[in-house]
Simulated scan of single mutants.
Amino acid sequence: MRAVVQRASSASVTVESELVSALDSPGVVVLLGVSVQDTEAEAVQLAGKIAHLRMLDDEASLISAGAPALVVSQFTLYGDVRKGRRPSWTRSAKAEIAEPLYERFIAELERCGVHVERGVFGAMMEVALVNSGPFTVWVDTGDLPAPQR
């Protein structure tokens, strides 16, 4: 599972010209990619890691600052561009696998005490954000110790 995490002073998601979610205070935008090999344990592990990362002002975490997260599914994080000119999506999980893991990730962030706004899974979205810093990190469960099962 992969996440691009961006500190944001504001952010929103619009679908078909309708605002569906927005951060009402500074927080983070999480672009979340799910691979064909990801598990529920990895969703839990990644959410805990992001909830506790000290990436806000004064080295605060989402939890300690009471800051919100806007989570948007993004299968393109597993795009493979090594061959040819068209990205391959074979490593991206299909919706029937990805959506429950996306929901589990969000549920775990909420369990940690993070207020979560969300995109619309599988929809064509317009994501707007003002990246504060700029501050962007890439978190991949493949780079973290194996989750406890």
Rank of each mutant, 00 (worst) to 15 (best):
V4D: 02
V5W: 07
R7P: 02
S9L: 09
S10Y: 06
S10F: 07
A11S: 14
V13C: 06
T14Q: 02
V15C: 06
S17F: 08
L19F: 01
L19D: 03
L19T: 11
A22C: 09
L23Q: 00
S25Y: 04
P26I: 12
V28K: 07
V30A: 09
L31H: 11
L31I: 12
L32G: 06
L32A: 10
G33E: 07
V34L: 09
S35A: 14
S35I: 06
V36S: 12
Q37E: 15
Q37C: 03
Q37Y: 10
A41K: 08
E42P: 01
E42Q: 15
V44H: 09
Q45D: 09
Q45T: 11
L46F: 02
A47E: 03
A47K: 05
K49P: 01
K49F: 10
I50A: 08
A51C: 03
A51S: 11
H52T: 15
H52G: 13
L53D: 08
L53R: 12
R54S: 11
E59W: 11
A60C: 05
A60W: 01
A60R: 15
L62A: 04
I63M: 05
A65F: 06
A65E: 07
G66T: 08
P68E: 01
L70Y: 04
L70K: 04
L70W: 05
V71W: 05
V71S: 11
V71R: 09
S73G: 03
Q74H: 12
Q74W: 00
Y78H: 15
Y78W: 15
D80R: 06
R82P: 00
K83M: 07
R85M: 13
R85C: 05
R86N: 01
S88Y: 03
R91H: 14
S92A: 15
A95V: 14
E96N: 10
A98K: 02
P100F: 10
E103S: 09
F105D: 06
F105S: 10
E108S: 07
E110T: 14
C112W: 01
G113S: 11
V114P: 06
E117K: 09
R118E: 03
R118N: 00
G119D: 09
V120W: 00
M124C: 04
M124W: 06
M124D: 13
E126T: 12
V127I: 15
V127L: 15
A128R: 13
L129Q: 00
V130D: 02
N131V: 11
G133V: 14
F135C: 13
V137W: 08
V137P: 01
V137H: 04
W138D: 09
T141I: 11
T141C: 10
T141N: 02
T141K: 00
G142W: 05
G142M: 10
D143L: 13
D143K: 09
L144D: 02
P145S: 13
P145Y: 04
A146Q: 12
Q148F: 11
R149S: 15
R149T: 14
